[in-house]
Design a protein around this nucleic acid. Structure first.
Length: 345
DNA sequence: CCCTATCCTGCCT
DNA sequence: AGGCAGGATAGG
Protein backbone atom coordinates (compact mmCIF):
# COMPACT_ATOMS: atom_id res chain seq x y z
CA UNK A 1 0.00 0.00 0.00
CA UNK A 2 2.52 2.59 1.15
CA UNK A 3 5.50 3.23 -1.07
CA UNK A 4 8.55 4.97 0.28
CA UNK A 5 11.98 6.41 -0.31
CA UNK A 6 14.82 7.21 2.05
CA UNK A 7 14.89 10.74 3.41
CA UNK A 8 16.35 11.86 6.72
CA UNK A 9 14.67 14.45 8.91
CA UNK A 10 17.74 16.61 8.54
CA UNK A 11 16.79 16.82 4.89
CA UNK A 12 13.04 17.27 5.32
CA UNK A 13 11.19 18.04 8.53
CA UNK A 14 7.61 17.36 7.47
CA UNK A 15 6.14 18.36 10.79
CA UNK A 16 7.34 21.92 10.30
CA UNK A 17 7.58 22.20 6.53
CA UNK A 18 3.96 21.19 5.89
CA UNK A 19 2.52 23.42 8.60
CA UNK A 20 4.64 26.57 8.67
CA UNK A 21 2.46 28.71 6.44
CA UNK A 22 3.99 27.99 3.04
CA UNK A 23 1.08 25.83 2.08
CA UNK A 24 -2.34 25.93 3.70
CA UNK A 25 -3.93 22.64 2.71
CA UNK A 26 -1.84 19.95 4.41
CA UNK A 27 -3.79 18.39 7.26
CA UNK A 28 -2.46 16.03 9.86
CA UNK A 29 -4.53 12.87 10.13
CA UNK A 30 -5.85 12.74 13.72
CA UNK A 31 -5.98 8.95 13.63
CA UNK A 32 -2.51 8.49 12.19
CA UNK A 33 0.07 10.68 13.92
CA UNK A 34 2.86 12.05 11.76
CA UNK A 35 0.70 11.48 8.72
CA UNK A 36 -0.60 14.26 6.47
CA UNK A 37 -2.92 14.49 3.51
CA UNK A 38 -3.60 17.02 0.79
CA UNK A 39 -4.76 17.20 -2.79
CA UNK A 40 -2.03 18.01 -5.28
CA UNK A 41 -2.25 17.92 -9.04
CA UNK A 42 -5.41 15.89 -9.30
CA UNK A 43 -4.63 13.31 -6.65
CA UNK A 44 -5.18 12.90 -2.95
CA UNK A 45 -1.81 12.32 -1.33
CA UNK A 46 -1.01 10.78 2.04
CA UNK A 47 2.47 11.31 3.45
CA UNK A 48 4.10 9.77 6.48
CA UNK A 49 7.58 10.43 7.78
CA UNK A 50 9.16 7.81 9.98
CA UNK A 51 12.42 6.00 10.50
CA UNK A 52 14.43 7.93 7.93
CA UNK A 53 11.86 7.40 5.21
CA UNK A 54 9.02 9.25 3.57
CA UNK A 55 6.06 7.00 2.86
CA UNK A 56 3.40 8.02 0.37
CA UNK A 57 0.24 6.83 -1.32
CA UNK A 58 -2.30 8.45 -3.62
CA UNK A 59 -5.96 8.18 -4.58
CA UNK A 60 -7.99 9.59 -7.41
CA UNK A 61 -11.45 8.70 -8.65
CA UNK A 62 -11.52 10.78 -11.76
CA UNK A 63 -8.95 11.35 -14.43
CA UNK A 64 -8.51 14.97 -13.45
CA UNK A 65 -4.81 14.34 -13.12
CA UNK A 66 -4.47 13.96 -16.86
CA UNK A 67 -5.79 17.48 -17.36
CA UNK A 68 -3.67 19.18 -14.73
CA UNK A 69 -1.15 21.64 -15.97
CA UNK A 70 1.69 20.71 -13.69
CA UNK A 71 5.10 20.13 -15.16
CA UNK A 72 8.06 18.58 -13.43
CA UNK A 73 11.36 20.42 -13.73
CA UNK A 74 12.23 17.83 -16.34
CA UNK A 75 9.31 19.15 -18.38
CA UNK A 76 7.21 15.99 -18.03
CA UNK A 77 3.66 15.61 -16.76
CA UNK A 78 3.18 13.52 -13.68
CA UNK A 79 1.83 9.99 -14.09
CA UNK A 80 1.24 7.12 -11.67
CA UNK A 81 4.70 5.75 -12.21
CA UNK A 82 6.30 9.11 -11.55
CA UNK A 83 4.96 9.79 -8.10
CA UNK A 84 8.30 9.48 -6.38
CA UNK A 85 9.82 11.80 -8.93
CA UNK A 86 6.99 14.22 -8.29
CA UNK A 87 7.59 14.20 -4.54
CA UNK A 88 11.31 14.70 -5.01
CA UNK A 89 10.47 17.67 -7.18
CA UNK A 90 7.84 18.99 -4.74
CA UNK A 91 10.27 18.77 -1.82
CA UNK A 92 13.16 19.90 -4.02
CA UNK A 93 15.34 17.09 -2.73
CA UNK A 94 18.12 17.91 -5.15
CA UNK A 95 18.91 20.82 -2.84
CA UNK A 96 21.31 19.83 -0.07
CA UNK A 97 19.79 21.44 3.02
CA UNK A 98 22.38 20.38 5.64
CA UNK A 99 25.06 21.88 3.45
CA UNK A 100 23.14 25.16 3.15
CA UNK A 101 22.56 25.19 6.92
CA UNK A 102 26.30 24.94 7.33
CA UNK A 103 26.84 27.90 5.05
CA UNK A 104 24.16 30.04 6.71
CA UNK A 105 25.52 29.19 10.16
CA UNK A 106 28.96 30.40 9.19
CA UNK A 107 27.46 33.63 7.90
CA UNK A 108 25.13 34.26 10.84
CA UNK A 109 25.76 33.48 14.50
CA UNK A 110 22.06 33.81 15.20
CA UNK A 111 21.24 31.17 12.61
CA UNK A 112 23.75 28.71 14.02
CA UNK A 113 21.77 28.62 17.25
CA UNK A 114 18.68 27.42 15.44
CA UNK A 115 20.12 24.72 13.32
CA UNK A 116 19.89 21.83 15.74
CA UNK A 117 16.32 22.44 16.91
CA UNK A 118 14.99 23.41 13.50
CA UNK A 119 16.63 21.11 11.02
CA UNK A 120 15.24 20.07 7.67
CA UNK A 121 13.25 23.20 6.91
CA UNK A 122 13.05 23.72 3.18
CA UNK A 123 10.87 25.29 0.53
CA UNK A 124 8.16 23.28 -1.13
CA UNK A 125 7.91 23.75 -4.87
CA UNK A 126 4.24 24.64 -5.08
CA UNK A 127 1.79 25.25 -7.86
CA UNK A 128 1.83 28.97 -8.76
CA UNK A 129 -1.96 29.25 -9.09
CA UNK A 130 -2.67 27.81 -5.67
CA UNK A 131 0.24 29.73 -4.21
CA UNK A 132 -0.83 33.08 -5.64
CA UNK A 133 -4.48 32.92 -4.64
CA UNK A 134 -3.74 31.48 -1.21
CA UNK A 135 -1.52 34.45 -0.47
CA UNK A 136 -4.03 36.96 -1.80
CA UNK A 137 -6.25 35.46 0.92
CA UNK A 138 -3.48 35.88 3.48
CA UNK A 139 -3.57 39.63 3.83
CA UNK A 140 -4.67 40.78 7.27
CA UNK A 141 -5.27 37.19 8.31
CA UNK A 142 -3.82 34.39 10.40
CA UNK A 143 -2.91 30.88 9.29
CA UNK A 144 -6.07 29.38 10.69
CA UNK A 145 -8.41 31.64 8.77
CA UNK A 146 -6.30 31.56 5.63
CA UNK A 147 -6.65 27.78 5.67
CA UNK A 148 -10.40 28.08 6.07
CA UNK A 149 -10.69 30.51 3.18
CA UNK A 150 -8.51 28.39 0.91
CA UNK A 151 -10.64 25.38 1.70
CA UNK A 152 -13.76 27.35 0.78
CA UNK A 153 -12.20 28.23 -2.55
CA UNK A 154 -11.63 24.54 -3.23
CA UNK A 155 -15.08 23.42 -2.09
CA UNK A 156 -16.83 25.98 -4.24
CA UNK A 157 -14.64 26.21 -7.32
CA UNK A 158 -12.42 23.13 -7.37
CA UNK A 159 -13.11 19.68 -8.81
CA UNK A 160 -14.02 16.64 -6.75
CA UNK A 161 -10.97 14.42 -6.67
CA UNK A 162 -12.01 11.62 -4.35
CA UNK A 163 -14.53 10.86 -1.63
CA UNK A 164 -13.32 8.76 1.26
CA UNK A 165 -14.89 8.10 4.63
CA UNK A 166 -17.60 10.64 3.97
CA UNK A 167 -15.16 13.42 3.18
CA UNK A 168 -14.94 14.97 -0.24
CA UNK A 169 -11.52 16.10 -1.36
CA UNK A 170 -11.32 18.91 -3.90
CA UNK A 171 -8.62 20.24 -6.15
CA UNK A 172 -7.58 23.86 -6.03
CA UNK A 173 -9.67 25.82 -8.54
CA UNK A 174 -8.43 26.73 -11.97
CA UNK A 175 -7.89 30.30 -13.06
CA UNK A 176 -10.87 29.96 -15.35
CA UNK A 177 -13.16 28.95 -12.50
CA UNK A 178 -12.08 31.95 -10.43
CA UNK A 179 -12.53 34.40 -13.28
CA UNK A 180 -16.12 33.34 -14.03
CA UNK A 181 -18.90 35.92 -13.60
CA UNK A 182 -20.34 36.23 -10.10
CA UNK A 183 -17.30 34.94 -8.26
CA UNK A 184 -16.72 38.15 -6.32
CA UNK A 185 -20.27 38.28 -4.99
CA UNK A 186 -20.19 34.61 -4.05
CA UNK A 187 -16.86 34.95 -2.25
CA UNK A 188 -18.09 37.95 -0.33
CA UNK A 189 -21.04 35.90 0.74
CA UNK A 190 -18.63 33.19 1.88
CA UNK A 191 -16.77 35.63 4.12
CA UNK A 192 -13.73 36.62 2.07
CA UNK A 193 -14.38 40.31 2.69
CA UNK A 194 -12.53 42.74 0.46
CA UNK A 195 -10.24 39.94 -0.72
CA UNK A 196 -13.13 38.65 -2.85
CA UNK A 197 -12.61 41.45 -5.34
CA UNK A 198 -8.85 40.86 -5.55
CA UNK A 199 -9.24 37.13 -6.18
CA UNK A 200 -11.71 37.56 -8.97
CA UNK A 201 -9.93 40.56 -10.48
CA UNK A 202 -6.51 38.89 -10.46
CA UNK A 203 -7.87 35.72 -12.05
CA UNK A 204 -9.63 37.73 -14.71
CA UNK A 205 -6.61 39.95 -15.26
CA UNK A 206 -4.38 36.95 -15.97
CA UNK A 207 -6.99 35.37 -18.22
CA UNK A 208 -7.64 38.44 -20.35
CA UNK A 209 -4.25 40.17 -20.35
CA UNK A 210 -1.91 37.20 -20.30
CA UNK A 211 -3.97 34.41 -21.81
CA UNK A 212 -4.24 32.10 -18.83
CA UNK A 213 -2.23 30.27 -16.21
CA UNK A 214 0.52 29.32 -18.60
CA UNK A 215 1.78 32.88 -18.12
CA UNK A 216 2.26 32.19 -14.41
CA UNK A 217 4.26 29.03 -15.09
CA UNK A 218 6.44 30.88 -17.54
CA UNK A 219 7.49 33.31 -14.81
CA UNK A 220 9.64 30.43 -13.56
CA UNK A 221 11.91 31.04 -16.50
CA UNK A 222 12.21 34.79 -15.90
CA UNK A 223 14.55 36.57 -13.52
CA UNK A 224 13.47 37.30 -9.95
CA UNK A 225 13.21 41.02 -10.68
CA UNK A 226 11.10 40.50 -13.80
CA UNK A 227 8.78 37.97 -12.17
CA UNK A 228 8.31 40.27 -9.16
CA UNK A 229 7.50 43.25 -11.37
CA UNK A 230 4.94 41.22 -13.30
CA UNK A 231 3.25 39.92 -10.16
CA UNK A 232 2.80 43.27 -8.43
CA UNK A 233 0.83 44.44 -11.45
CA UNK A 234 -1.97 42.10 -10.35
CA UNK A 235 -4.78 43.55 -8.24
CA UNK A 236 -4.32 42.73 -4.56
CA UNK A 237 -0.69 41.74 -5.01
CA UNK A 238 1.96 43.90 -3.34
CA UNK A 239 5.64 43.32 -2.72
CA UNK A 240 5.10 40.80 0.06
CA UNK A 241 2.66 38.52 -1.75
CA UNK A 242 4.75 38.77 -4.91
CA UNK A 243 7.79 37.61 -2.96
CA UNK A 244 5.84 34.71 -1.48
CA UNK A 245 4.91 33.54 -4.96
CA UNK A 246 8.42 34.09 -6.31
CA UNK A 247 9.93 32.07 -3.48
CA UNK A 248 7.37 29.32 -3.04
CA UNK A 249 6.34 28.44 -6.56
CA UNK A 250 8.49 30.28 -9.09
CA UNK A 251 11.94 28.96 -8.12
CA UNK A 252 13.25 32.37 -7.01
CA UNK A 253 15.44 31.24 -4.12
CA UNK A 254 16.59 34.77 -3.31
CA UNK A 255 13.08 36.21 -2.81
CA UNK A 256 12.39 37.21 0.80
CA UNK A 257 8.83 38.08 1.83
CA UNK A 258 8.85 40.62 4.65
CA UNK A 259 5.67 40.24 6.67
CA UNK A 260 5.09 41.52 10.18
CA UNK A 261 6.90 38.49 11.64
CA UNK A 262 10.02 39.01 9.55
CA UNK A 263 9.81 42.71 10.26
CA UNK A 264 9.90 41.99 14.00
CA UNK A 265 12.77 39.54 13.60
CA UNK A 266 14.76 42.04 11.55
CA UNK A 267 14.25 44.84 14.08
CA UNK A 268 15.06 42.62 17.03
CA UNK A 269 18.07 40.70 15.76
CA UNK A 270 19.59 42.37 12.72
CA UNK A 271 18.64 45.93 11.85
CA UNK A 272 17.73 47.75 15.09
CA UNK A 273 18.11 51.15 13.47
CA UNK A 274 14.84 50.47 11.62
CA UNK A 275 12.98 50.70 14.93
CA UNK A 276 12.54 54.38 14.19
CA UNK A 277 10.19 53.45 11.34
CA UNK A 278 6.48 53.49 11.95
CA UNK A 279 5.57 51.18 9.11
CA UNK A 280 7.29 48.98 6.56
CA UNK A 281 8.06 51.40 3.77
CA UNK A 282 9.15 50.23 0.34
CA UNK A 283 12.63 51.40 1.14
CA UNK A 284 12.87 49.50 4.42
CA UNK A 285 11.34 46.47 2.73
CA UNK A 286 14.14 46.42 0.19
CA UNK A 287 16.79 47.14 2.78
CA UNK A 288 15.80 44.10 4.83
CA UNK A 289 15.64 41.83 1.81
CA UNK A 290 19.00 43.04 0.54
CA UNK A 291 20.53 42.60 3.99
CA UNK A 292 19.52 38.95 4.17
CA UNK A 293 20.49 38.32 0.56
CA UNK A 294 23.91 39.76 1.22
CA UNK A 295 24.36 37.64 4.35
CA UNK A 296 22.94 34.31 3.19
CA UNK A 297 23.60 34.36 -0.54
CA UNK A 298 21.78 32.67 -3.38
CA UNK A 299 19.33 30.71 -1.23
CA UNK A 300 18.54 33.58 1.15
CA UNK A 301 14.82 33.03 0.77
CA UNK A 302 15.21 29.49 2.03
CA UNK A 303 17.20 30.68 5.02
CA UNK A 304 14.50 33.22 5.79
CA UNK A 305 11.98 30.39 6.06
CA UNK A 306 14.08 28.76 8.77
CA UNK A 307 14.13 31.98 10.78
CA UNK A 308 10.45 32.44 10.18
CA UNK A 309 9.45 28.89 11.12
CA UNK A 310 11.54 28.95 14.26
CA UNK A 311 9.84 32.15 15.38
CA UNK A 312 6.41 30.82 14.49
CA UNK A 313 7.04 27.59 16.37
CA UNK A 314 8.14 29.44 19.47
CA UNK A 315 5.00 31.50 19.33
CA UNK A 316 2.76 28.45 18.96
CA UNK A 317 4.54 26.67 21.80
CA UNK A 318 3.89 29.67 24.00
CA UNK A 319 0.25 29.60 23.01
CA UNK A 320 -0.24 25.91 23.75
CA UNK A 321 1.66 26.05 27.03
CA UNK A 322 -1.09 28.18 28.57
CA UNK A 323 -2.65 31.58 28.33
CA UNK A 324 -0.32 33.01 30.94
CA UNK A 325 2.68 33.15 28.68
CA UNK A 326 0.59 34.34 25.76
CA UNK A 327 -0.74 37.23 27.80
CA UNK A 328 2.74 37.99 28.89
CA UNK A 329 3.98 38.13 25.33
CA UNK A 330 1.06 40.30 24.29
CA UNK A 331 1.72 42.65 27.17
CA UNK A 332 5.35 42.86 26.17
CA UNK A 333 4.31 43.82 22.67
CA UNK A 334 1.94 46.49 23.91
CA UNK A 335 4.59 47.99 26.10
CA UNK A 336 6.98 48.12 23.21
CA UNK A 337 4.41 49.87 21.08
CA UNK A 338 3.75 52.47 23.74
CA UNK A 339 7.39 53.24 24.39
CA UNK A 340 7.95 53.49 20.67
CA UNK A 341 5.20 56.04 20.33
CA UNK A 342 6.64 58.09 23.17
CA UNK A 343 10.04 58.18 21.55
CA UNK A 344 8.54 59.43 18.33
CA UNK A 345 6.67 62.19 20.10
C1' DC B 1 9.32 59.25 -0.30
C1' DC B 2 6.58 58.63 4.10
C1' DC B 3 2.30 58.41 6.46
C1' DT B 4 -2.66 57.40 7.29
C1' DA B 5 -7.18 55.59 6.69
C1' DT B 6 -9.82 52.13 4.82
C1' DC B 7 -11.06 47.66 3.44
C1' DC B 8 -14.10 42.66 5.69
C1' DT B 9 -14.46 39.04 8.75
C1' DG B 10 -13.83 35.67 12.38
C1' DC B 11 -11.61 34.68 16.35
C1' DC B 12 -9.90 36.15 20.42
C1' DT B 13 -10.02 38.42 24.98
C1' DA C 1 -17.80 45.10 22.39
C1' DG C 2 -13.49 46.00 20.84
C1' DG C 3 -8.90 44.63 19.33
C1' DC C 4 -6.46 42.60 15.93
C1' DA C 5 -4.44 39.55 12.33
C1' DG C 6 1.53 36.54 8.23
C1' DG C 7 -1.40 43.54 3.49
C1' DA C 8 -2.85 46.42 -0.51
C1' DT C 9 -4.30 50.69 -2.11
C1' DA C 10 -5.48 55.47 -2.69
C1' DG C 11 -4.62 59.94 -1.34
C1' DG C 12 -2.40 63.65 1.23
Amino acid sequence: MWKYFNCLETEVNCKIVLKCGQSFRWKEDPKLPNTWYNVLYGKLWHLKQDDGKIYYKTHSDSNVSSSCTYLLKSGKFISDTEEEQFLRDYFQLDIDIPKLYEKWSNADKNFSQLKTNFCGIRMLRQDPVENLFSFICSQNNNIKRISQLVEKLCENYGNTIVESEGVTHYSFPSLKALSAPGVEEKLRQLGFGYRAKFIHASAKFIETNHGGEDWLYKLRKKSYEDAHTELVSLPGVGAKVADCVCLMSLDKTEAIPIDTHMWQIALRDYLPHLKKNKTVTDKAYREIGDFFREMYGEYAGWAHTVLFSADLKRFEDLKSSGTKSLDKRKKDMNIKKKTKKKKVK
